[in-house]
C-alpha cells in the first residue's frame, strides 16, 4: 500500500511493501536479510578489527569493544545476578548489539539510494518478523535458563507467592514476547515513518530533530530490549526463598 505518492524519489513512502524471495514455497522478506547481512558484516568486521591484536593497554577499536563488553557485563550482571550472568552475557550482548546496529544502521545509512524492485531497505528491526523472532528467542532463553538451572522447580515460580498468581504468570509468558516485539517494531517503524513524512513535507533541515530523536530512541530501544531480556532470564534463574 503505497502511501503519499511523491514527486521526489528520496521521499517515497512505502509501508508494508516487501521484496519477496521464495525458497521452496516459503516466502521471506529479502530486504530484511539484505540489510541485516550488511549490518552484521559491518559489526563483525569491526569486532575482528578490534580483537585481532588484543593488548593489555587497549587502543582504537579495542577500547570501544571493551566499553561495550563492560556495559553488557554490567547490564547482565545487574539483571541476572552474579551466579548465572556469564552464561547469558553473549546472548544479551548479541541482542543489544544486533538491535543497536540494526536501528542505527537503518537510520544512518541512506538506504533509499538503493532501489529495489519492490519494498525498500531499512532497519531490520522495523520488520515485525525480526522483532518477533528476537522476542521468541528471549522466551525460549528464559524458559531454558529456568529449566536448566532449577529443573521442574522452575514451575514453582508460577505459584509464587500464591497459586492465585498462576493465570497471571501464564499470561505473562504471552505478554512478554508480545510487548517486547511490538515495542521495538513500533518504535523503529514509527521513527522511520516520522522521518519519511517530514522529509516528504519539508525536505531540508526540518527532519533533522526528528532524526536525532530517532537515533536516541533507537539506542534506548536496544537498551530496553536487552535489559528486559536479561531481566526475564534473571527472573527465571532467581532462587526464591
Amino acid at each position: 500500500m503505497p502511501l503519499l505518492p511523491s514527486p521526489l524519489p528520496l521521499a517515497e513512502l512505502e509501508v508494508g511493501q516487501h521484496l519477496y524471495w521464495q525458497i521452496g514455497n516459503l516466502n521471506i522478506h529479502g530486504q530484511v536479510f539484505l540489510t541485516s547481512w550488511i549490518l552484521i558484516g559491518a559489526l563483525l568486521l569491526f569486532v575482528i578489527s578490534g580483537t585481532r591484536r588484543i593488548q593489555r593497554v587497549p587502543s582504537g577499536p579495542q577500547n570501544l569493544l571493551e566499553f561495550f563488553w563492560e556495559y553488557i557485563r554490567n547490564l547482565s550482571r545487574d539483571q541476572i545476578g552474579e551466579a548465572a550472568y556469564r552464561d547469558w552475557m553473549p546472548f544479551i550482548g548479541t541482542l543489544f548489539l544486533f538491535i543497536f546496529v540494526s536501528n542505527w544502521g537503518g537510520a544512518l545509512i541512506p538506504w533509499k539510494l538503493i532501489h529495489l524492485p519492490s519494498g525498500e531497505l531499512g532497519a531490520p528491526t522495523g520488520d515485525i518478523n525480526t522483532t518477533v523472532a528476537l522476542a521468541l528467542l528471549v522466551s525460549l532463553a528464559y524458559f531454558y535458563a529456568g529449566l536448566s538451572r532449577k529443573g521442574l522447580r522452575y514451575f514453582e515460580y508460577y505459584v509464587d507467592p500464591t497459586p492465585i498468581m498462576l493465570p497471571f504468570k501464564i499470561a505473562e509468558d504471552f505478554t512478554k514476547p508480545l510487548s517486547l516485539s511490538f515495542r521495538l517494531f513500533g518504535n523503529i517503524l514509527a521513527d522511520e515513518l516520522v522521518v519519511a513524512v517530514l522529509v516528504f513535507l519539508v525536505p531540508l533541515v526540518a527532519p533533522l530533530p526528528a532524526m536525532l530523536l530517532g537515533l536516541f530512541t533507537s539506542a534506548i530501544q536496544a537498551l530496553i530490549f536487552a535489559t528486559l531480556a536479561a531481566y526475564y532470564i534473571g527472573e527465571a534463574v532467581h532462587e526464591h526463598h
Binding site: 509501508v15 508494508g16 516487501h18 525458497i23 516459503l26 516466502n27 521471506i28 522478506h29 530484511v32 536479510f33 541485516s36 531490520p124 520488520d127 515485525i128 518478523n129 525480526t130 518477533v132 523472532a133 528476537l134 521468541l136 528467542l137 517503524l189
Partner: peptide, 12 residues
C-alpha cells in the same frame, strides 16, 4: 505491515 512468514525463523 504484519506479514509474518519464513523470515521469522530464519532471522531467529
Amino acid at each position: 505491515l504484519f506479514d509474518l512468514n519464513a523470515t521469522l525463523p530464519l532471522m531467529a
